[in-house]
Write a protein that binds this DNA or RNA. Structure first.
Length: 626
RNA sequence: GCUUAUGUAGCUCAGGGGUAGAGCACAUCCUUGGUAAGGAUGAGGUCGCGGGUUCAAUUCCCGCCAUAAGCUCCA
């Protein structure tokens, strides 16, 4: 992701906003401080990024957060010196000489070259201006622009230190990346820090535990989420919602197993090509026993599985191959098309351990998946239908803050299956669809699936990371690999086109982001507990119980707090649980045969009869109101 | 997978070479109170797991597991 950000800053370098310019300058202030403290520091790049800036540095000393105080103190001196940022245009030879004497990104000449600056220098195309920015004794190779003086960087803070590969390439050395942020003044900096604190309170991992929605167990395994009863309710409501939509749009629900033979994935292209991102295959029992009898080693087993000499099974990484087999199980006429097969299909992927986190990146997840098999002529309409569904689903939940990404293949890479012609057809179809939908889409080469391009709906989590949710993908390739066909009006076999689509993407990731979107305050239809009845004292528990029964009878998820706590405490607990409605019940209400209604956000809603309350909340739930 | 942190009660965290503490939650009892915390008592821990150093390890060292941020990756 930072790589993308880097690319963006390069592209936008000359159109840098004032804030970005300030942060870029602050990165130089940071580098100045580090160079003074550790003269052996070798700097790479130090751009502004969303929310702040960083500088990559190679240094014998391992910078830890304990060093921040010291670095910030040195930065303070640099700021106080209030040196002017001076731009000096130099020739390539001059710049080379400085880099070779170690004078670039440093406060003095050194015995060693400025290695990364030298490398970056070599990448600047012939004819392009080469500039050095100087602030006091610190000289850096930099295209700018900068603020006037170091004194402009008044409000900054170092945030974290991490490692990053030089130029984002795994084969390059790892550098220490120091992140910081900077604002025009202290007030804005503090506001920013407060916003970060606020955002943390909405973190789905924190809320998921507090609200009892899901958990992980070290014994079950990393990245394998366990949905608890309350999370189960949210999930079921989401599934019911999708199912209703599918029923009205001509989909058929299917059910398929969680595993399939390796041969299936050989045909689809998942095995052995994507072997390392899957759970290891299971060999058949006879094969295991046979090999064991022979005293064979693991290498032979693995090799046999790869070549197909030994048959085995794999946990499914996707649902498409199974759905394809359902399509292929019948003789299809063009009159049968489109065939729309839907399934809440659980898939398993071996994500690297460092990438797992909360519900947003897991090793086992359930897609609200569907595959549409259609004629080439139907593709455009079907894509529109899918996009409409995604928009409706996101709209119902009030998740309007997404970006649409057109994920295309990377022309340089060879990881894709299928012919270039098919890819072009598919990419054109999606471009057309996006245009027709009338939304701004960002084209991202290299983000495509291995079998086809996609339209992805991307949202941000509380700490600003992008996550792909809904997706619509056109695929001319898998139908070919599986030799799918239908009979056309010309009585000849034709190749269908496949569309893969998932409005939520995965229920896990979607729920995670939904928790953050609502800060745990689910709309009533999704809330695990919709109403809590709070008798003023235990002598009204009986009346409370009657209300509970009436609500439950009407299909409302309701519970009574019949403890000996005072109402104040009961309200507090109900609000901490984000229960939408609280019904307070005391002598007054019982006497007048009514309930006093309180909403978690809208506070006191006055009194109404229980019947009115029931019919109001039923309507709110059935409409899936926000 | 890599870098850097972190891991003590259900949760949030304090502590520290001599086998542990707070608040909340929980249990029991008292209280029956009108819109975000009534009171008392009590129970609860192999200090992530496994090795090592030591008379003694939860504390120091090593390995592993898990979590977090970032990088890389995400069919």
């Amino acid at each position: 992701m930072a790589e993308k950000t880097d690319r963006k800053t390069l592209e936008e370098r000359h159109g840098m906003s004032d804030l970005e310019r300030l942060r870029h300058s602050c990165a130089h202030v940071l580098a100045t401080a580090i160079a003074r403290i550790w003269p052996d520091a070798q700097f790479a790049a130090g751009p502004p990024v969303e929310g702040g800036f960083y500088y990559d540095v190679d240094l014998k000393h391992r910078i830890s957060t304990e060093d921040f105080e010291r670095i910030e103190a040195e930065m303070k001196k640099v700021v106080k010196e209030n040196a002017t940022f001076v731009k000096v245009v130099v020739t390539r030879e001059e710049a080379m000489a400085m880099a070779k004497s170690g004078r670039l990104a440093s406060v003095a000449e050194r015995k060693v070259e400025s290695v990364f600056k030298l490398d970056l220098l070599n990448e600047i195309p012939e004819g392009e201006e080469i500039s050095i920015y100087q602030n006091g004794d610190f000289w850096d190779l930099c295209a700018g622009p900068h603020v006037g003086r170091t004194g402009n960087c008044k409000a900054y803070k170092l945030m974290s230190v991490a490692s990053a590969f030089y130029k984002g390439d795994k084969s390059n050395p790892q550098l220490q990346r120091v992140y910081g942020t900077c604002f025009p003044n202290k007030t804005q900096l503090n506001e920013h820090l407060e916003r970060l604190e606020e955002a943390k309170k909405r973190d789905h991992r924190k809320l998921g535990r507090e609200l009892g929605l899901f958990t992980f167990s070290e014994v079950v395994g990393q990245g394998l989420p366990l949905w608890k009863p309350k999370g189960g309710i949210v999930r079921r409501e989401l599934q019911d919602f999708i199912t209703e939509e599918l029923d009205s749009q001509g989909y058929y629900q299917v059910f398929t197993p969680h595993i399939g033979k390796l041969d299936l994935y050989r045909t689809s292209g998942h095995f052995p090509y994507y072997e390392e991102s899957q759970f290891p295959p299971m060999a058949e029992r006879d094969a295991w026993e046979g090999l064991a009898d022979e005293g064979a080693d693991c290498g032979r087993l693995l090799n046999g599985l790869r070549t197909g000499a030994i048959e085995g099974f794999m946990l499914k990484p996707m649902n498409c191959p199974h759905h394809i087999q359902i399509f292929a199980s019948d003789h299809r006429s063009y009159r049968d098309l489109p065939v729309r097969l839907a399934e809440f299909g659980t898939v398993y992927r071996w994500e690297q351990s460092g990438e797992l986190g909360g519900l947003t990146r897991v090793r086992s997840f359930t897609q609200d998946d569907a595959h549409l098999f259609c004629t080439p002529e139907q593709v455009a309409d079907e894509i529109q239908g899918c996009l409409g569904l995604v928009k409706k689903v996101l709209g119902t939940l009030g998740m309007e803050d997404y970006t649409v990404r057109l994920s295309l293949r990377d022309l340089e890479s060879d990881k894709y299956v299928g012919s270039p012609e098919n890819w072009e057809k598919a990419e054109d179809a999606l471009r057309e669809a996006v245009k027709k939908m009338g939304v701004d889409a960002i084209e991202e080469p290299g983000e495509a699936a291995f079998y086809g391009p996609k339209i992805d709906f991307v949202v941000k989590d509380v700490i600003g990371r992008d996550w792909q949710l809904g997706t619509v993908q056109v695929d001319y390739n898998l139908p070919e690999r599986f030799d799918l066909s239908y009979v056309g009006s010309d009585n000849k076999p034709h190749r269908p086109v496949m569309i893969h689509r998932a409005p939520f993407g995965s229920l896990e990731r979607f729920t995670g982001l939904l928790i953050e979107h609502f800060a745990g305050k689910f709309p009533t239809w999704l809330a695990p507990e919709q109403v809590r009845v709070l008798p003023i004292s235990q002598q009204f528990n009986e009346a409370g119980q009657k209300a509970v029964e009436a609500l439950a009878e009407a299909g409302v998820r309701v519970r009574m707090d019949g403890t000996g706590d005072k109402v104040g405490a009961k309200i507090r607990l109900a609000r901490l649980d984000r229960v939408p409605y609280m019904l307070v019940l005391g002598a007054r209400e019982v006497e007048n045969n009514e309930v006093s209604v309180r909403h978690r956000d809208r506070e006191d809603l006055g009194t109404q009869s229980l019947d009115d309350f029931v019919s109001n909340i039923r309507e709110e739930i059935s409409k899936r109101s926000l």
